[in-house]
Amino acid sequence: MTNLKPLTIAVTGLNAIDSPGPGVAVARGLKEAKSFDANIIGLSYESLEPGIYLHDLFAKSYQIPYPTTGTETLLERIKYIHSVENIDVIIPNFDAELYSFMKLEKELNKLGIKLFLPEINQFEERQKINLPKFGKDYNIKVPHSKALYDAGEIYSLHDEFSYPLLVKGKYYDAYVAHTPQQATTFFHKISSKWGLPIIIQQFVKGNEYNVTGLGDGKGNMIAAVPMRKQYITDKGKAWGGITITDENIIELTRHFLKSTSWRGPFELELMKDPEGDYYLLEINPRMPAWIYLAVGVGQNIPEAIVNLALDQAVEPFESYQTSKMFIRYSWDMVLDIAEFQQISTFGEL
């Protein structure tokens, strides 16, 4: 038995599936925390999110309403869960839900629940559609990009772009197009799903690197672990990766945090071109699914988030083990329908 302070922490993103949410990895990090004893509550949207059934990690799971139903409904549900569980900290892990939690932060604080999230303006300025301005404002190289509202504009792109280029949705989806015809096809494909605008981004040849980390909201870097993907699934997700030593990436991350005063966890997607220049492709305002790699190499980011949320002093991590790999695997649980019945009928398990 430990003498550590018990804390109840609610975590979302329990969908450890082929395009996984980070919730299960975050929970593993919290379980290994050395500064508190975590009682972890799962918050799920769907009744088949694997984390719900991982009882060693999640003491209990509750279903919460989809972000589409609005903050009022979400708040009501969290109040109920809080009345049973007395939550100290919530760690949301989905892009699509972050806005709702940022919006509710004050209300949740009043209930005694703490969060450690980016501020709304930080969240907004990093949106894909705003990335060119972001790059300019903070002097970070980003691939040239442009928002299109009309597929007809694709044929006049040759002045600004060269093929191949990326055709991206406002929130999700990206395809490489080698011809205007392909770009047009992708334009229609993506816009029918995610609406307009469509973002055209110059394709940068090179190697992709990712870095996950944590900013304290005052411009300081608390954590940063760079990784190169070694195995990528057909959905573009890392199924294996290795930590690397690259001062340039750490410097770029430090610059990003210093200039934006980013608060909370993040993942930067970077491309290093043949000249050795780094381009920032995307900023994810949350931990990545591979966050346990950071925990495993010495930077327990989930633990640090909890402590920052609770206004505890957190010392920046100085180092991490380099050349450590992660390899993901899937695992079939066998369970009784009674568990599924419980979560799908009563919304808790």
């Binding site: 949207y45 769907e46 009744s47 088949l48 509750y62 279903q63 919460i64 309403p65 989809y66 139903t69 609005g70 009022e72 409904t73 009501e76 549900r77 799908s344 009928t345 919304g347």
Partner: peptide, 15 residues
């Protein structure tokens, strides 16, 4: 029918 993504009674109350 219970679907994986069923918005159950906890999902859409205020609506």
């Amino acid at each position: 029918r219970i679907e994986n993504e069923m918005p159950n009674k906890f999902g859409l109350r205020s609506e």
